[in-house]
Simulated scan of single mutants.
Amino acid sequence: MSDTPKKDAPIDDEARHASKMAKKKAARDRMMATKDGEKGLIIIHTGPGKGKSSSGFGMIMRCIAHKMPSAVVQFIKGGWQTGERTLIEENFSDLCQFYAMGEGFTWETQDKARDIAAAKAGWEKAKEMIRDDRNTMVLLDEINIALRYEYLDLAEVVEFLQTEKPPMTHVVLTGRNAKEELIEIADLVTEMGQIKHPFRAGIKAQKGVEF
């Protein structure tokens, strides 16, 4: 008997693959059929890795693309003129309100009272934007840092999100070291891990990558 593979073996492989994918699709369709609810989500992007703010701004750009009004309130690094801020203010200000409320990282200002005042002003603006149910999404960029340094009252932030956020408004909170109390009430939490970072190799923050 010849050991030569049958010429139709590749066809058998394709058939097996098609059958496997059909079963996966059927299972996926059954699962998706049970997911028909909608709600305004509390979303947290945290962790030591890069990409927390970038991911938040990506979601804001999705809203803009869908013509859905949104807002951004930047805590801490509001002193930077970032690419996201320039893009939104110059091209999409009719769809996205942008408020840079911070004055820079705490080691740059070296003035705790001023940092606290800026954070509190940012939180007042954030509440205004969230209460406005015309906004589909509100990004609170780096608010976790303000909470970590206790520039804001954590209990107040948690209570507001639980009791005053409109039912269909999404709120995205970014920054390292998200508080457990926020994680507890969130619907979606992503932790960005860090494997390598160019800063450790002596490479500074670069335009188009970090800002």
Rank of each mutant, 00 (worst) to 15 (best):
G208E: 07
I143M: 15
T34P: 00
E90R: 15
A126Y: 02
A178L: 06
E181N: 09
Y149P: 00
G49D: 01
P166F: 05
E89K: 15
L140A: 06
F105T: 00
E38S: 05
W80K: 07
K20T: 13
D153K: 12
S19I: 08
D29V: 09
G40V: 10
S53D: 06
G49A: 02
F160M: 10
P198D: 01
L41S: 11
V73L: 03
F92D: 03
E124Q: 15
S54D: 07
S19P: 00
D3N: 13
L161F: 02
M192P: 11
G40L: 11
M21C: 00
A15W: 03
I203N: 02
E142I: 10
S53E: 04
K50S: 08
L87V: 14
D115R: 08
G49C: 06
E159M: 11
K20G: 09
H197A: 11
T34W: 04
G175R: 00
T106L: 11
A71R: 07
R85Y: 13
A155W: 09
I185T: 04
I203A: 06
V138A: 11
N135Y: 12
Y149K: 01
A146F: 10
G51E: 06
K35F: 04
P198T: 06
G104C: 11
C96H: 11
E84F: 12
E164R: 12
D12P: 00
A205P: 05
L139I: 07
R28L: 14
E84V: 13
F57T: 07
E38M: 12
N177R: 11
R28Y: 08
K20V: 09
L152Y: 15
W107D: 14
T4A: 12
I183A: 10
W80Q: 12
G78R: 02
K125S: 04
M68V: 15
I88V: 09
C96V: 10
I11K: 14
R176I: 01
D153H: 09
D94T: 03
M101P: 09
R200W: 15
H45Y: 15
L140R: 06
E142T: 08
V138Y: 07
L140G: 08
L41D: 08
